[in-house]
Write a protein that binds this DNA or RNA. Structure first.
Lengths: 261, 261
DNA sequence: GTACTTGACTCCTCTAGACGAGTTTGAGAT
DNA sequence: ATCTCAAACTCGTCTAGAGGAGTCAAGTAC
């Protein structure tokens, strides 16, 4: 490792720990001496190099970690973050021609990208909806909804959690309320039941994950999430499903096509 | 302020600073005693309450800040983050009927939402494109592109930076290369010039901001950004513009409509 | 009354240690 | 040659201080 870091600029009024972070950040962004996966010099090494206290070095490393540039591994070291290959979610992923192939969108897309898709933590309950979900579905909080939660994984690594809400009047007692919804997933079942789908609305936010989300998705510190809420509308204009998903921003690029007309 | 925090659980093996952060996080999420804009108890208060060292309290506060829940103001205190009202960006924002009204999408939307839109830092240059931009525009890096950078503000607060790239062969020497593009913006000029627009592709990533981005958008620590790249296609299928925007995730909810057909 | 000073309170940076816990590695025993 | 175990090295948590700088309000001088 021939990484060479500059000395501190004692004339500058920039705090020491930020200067150290700057040096490391530049080395990472240049990418020549500190490439993804590489080990960042240890705390002890940096202390000696800069002649500062341990906490000062740790503040610098903390900063880089909060920027999502590095990951610390207890007992091993601090490493330059290597991002997993991202998946592009096309805006035609719910087109009927895909659904008719008999597989859910996630499975198809992941296999096409050469990954091994899996789904776990499937839970199904029947509950009263939150006011937000009730409003989106055109229900009241006194109505009941079928709630399907699950987690999606690629090559064993979790990338997304999803919770679907469907009016119990529609989905109650059907295969949608079973763990295995059969070929084509929820949307195929809805269409079989006569709820021919017309369009989906998607609302996307980006934010830092809650603690449970970071845990469920095994997110490295400093990784934001997409929070996407999709509402499916039948051809009669009625909403038939709300799907609330949280996705690792590391794993996805969302792609949409908009008409100019 | 009658905020009541529980004591530490010395039996738990959860680190003290995380326990303290948990207590504060819960109080914030409950929202009853610690609402947006409220002042979090000072470091000294928390030290006394929990009987721990200064650095322990600071670690807890640091954690909350990195989660985007609080903002520290030097000399004043730590405050529960109050998020600005978000703007929903509808997927028909570039429909021709809006463009024909003679205002750019950003101006129209912001005024409709009751805000005062403004644009600053307008810079126009002519450059060789990066390989990414060249590829999206169907050019080579030896061609030239007109580069329009600007920053969008709502009520004086920056929310988005945008850089548009257009083939110099199309936009060079036109009003698109002037600071004021005239009514309806770039897209109206392109259509006048005979490049009737067909559709837009948008690719969305979420990530933590670079340092310059955090500065340009005056982002609070722990605020991720949307990185959106839009490519505009003319009716003959040729790409005519690539727009690279970075948006504060605090200020936006992106909304799209997808067909189910 | 107004303007200025002062002090209390706030968070920011940094030092110099301590112990703990996970990982790796090499020396010694088998 | 292989296994075991302890040492060395890593980051994680925590203590107990120090001086600095920004903010605010009360009190002082004019």
């Amino acid at each position: 490792m021939d990484l060479i870091l500059p000395g501190l600029d004692s004339a500058s009024d920039r705090p020491v720990f930020k200067q150290i972070a700057d040096h490391l950040r530049e080395a990472i962004e240049r990418g020549d001496h500190l490439a993804p996966g590489d080990k960042v010099p240890s705390e002890a090494t940096l202390m000696a190099h800069y002649g500062v206290a341990r906490m000062t070095v740790r503040s610098a490393l903390q900063l880089l970690q909060s920027e999502g540039l590095t990951v610390a591994e207890h007992g091993r070291g601090v490493f330059v973050r290597s991002r997993p290959p991202v998946r592009r979610l096309a805006s035609d992923r719910f087109a009927r021609r895909h659904r008719d192939r008999g597989k859910a969108a996630f499975i198809v897309e992941t296999e096409e990208a050469g990954g091994k898709p899996s789904v776990d933590s499937i839970q199904i309950t029947e509950e009263h909806p939150s006011s937000d979900v009730a409003e989106r579905l055109g229900l009241t909080t006194r109505d009941k909804v079928v709630v399907r939660s699950r987690r999606y994984l690629i090559n064993g690594h979790p990338v997304e959690t999803a919770v679907s809400y469907l009016p119990a009047a529609i989905a109650g007692g059907t295969r949608i309320a079973e763990p295995d919804t059969g070929p084509g997933g929820i949307y195929a079942r809805l269409e079989e039941m006569g709820y021919r789908l017309d369009h989906f609305d998607e609302e996307i936010k980006a934010r830092m994950p809650l603690r449970e989300e970071a845990k469920a998705l095994k997110l490295a510190p400093g990784t934001p999430v997409f929070h996407l809420v999709r509402t499916a509308f039948a051809e009669d204009g009625r909403p038939v499903e709300v799907c609330d998903t949280v996705m690792s921003s590391d794993a996805y690029v969302l792609a949409y096509q908009l008409p100019a007309r």
